[in-house]
Design a protein around this nucleic acid. Sequence first.
DNA 1: CGCCGACGCTACGAAAAACATAGCAGGAGA
DNA 2: TCTCCTGCTATGTTTTTCGTAGCGTCGGCG
Lengths: 89, 89
Amino acid sequence: MAALDLLGRRWALRVIWELRSEAKRFRDLQQSSGASPSVLNQRLGELKQAGLLANTAEGYELTHAGRALIEAISPLHQWAEKWAKGLGS
Amino acid sequence: MAALDLLGRRWALRVIWELRSEAKRFRDLQQSSGASPSVLNQRLGELKQAGLLANTAEGYELTHAGRALIEAISPLHQWAEKWAKGLGS
DNA sequence: CGCCGACGCTACGAAAAACATAGCAGGAGA
DNA sequence: TCTCCTGCTATGTTTTTCGTAGCGTCGGCG
């Protein structure tokens, strides 16, 4: 899983996740994710170079590869929800 | 995705991944993952508390919840392989 | 008993990553 | 020109991770 080197970095998966349904602007990503601008910019650069997202006129949005990643993450998301509920028990 | 707070930390997913097929000892995990003992111990504590793994007589191994996570990660793994190949093009 | 190795883990200082905050440069509109 | 929004950078501080060394315990084995 070499992809973990990229996606394991802080905010990387989070940014992808934030863009799952719509394009967002730099400052919006900053707010909704909570990352500081320097790191956010760094991650955006890395993810852009990895071909997962692109900066369009509407802001940052996922590429085809990025949307494929979202689908691959979907089971993980479902697991996360179940797991979060189970923590209280 | 609150689970990202836990799994997004460095080595967290990696440790889970290393345990996917068999139990491993502390030092083995250290070697195969590459994490330093202090962080590894920290992550192991967090993951243990999260109920994803346990320290048995055979070493660290995944719990039921941990194995469920592995299954949830599986599509991500497949995506990662395709993506890694596509980077060269 | 004493010695040895493997075990999980901790301590320590150094390096790297992420932090919060302030501010820059460019473009659009009034 | 003035103002606002855009993406982004600069700075100094805090947090995280790193690399290495070493501790305490336990089970064999002589």
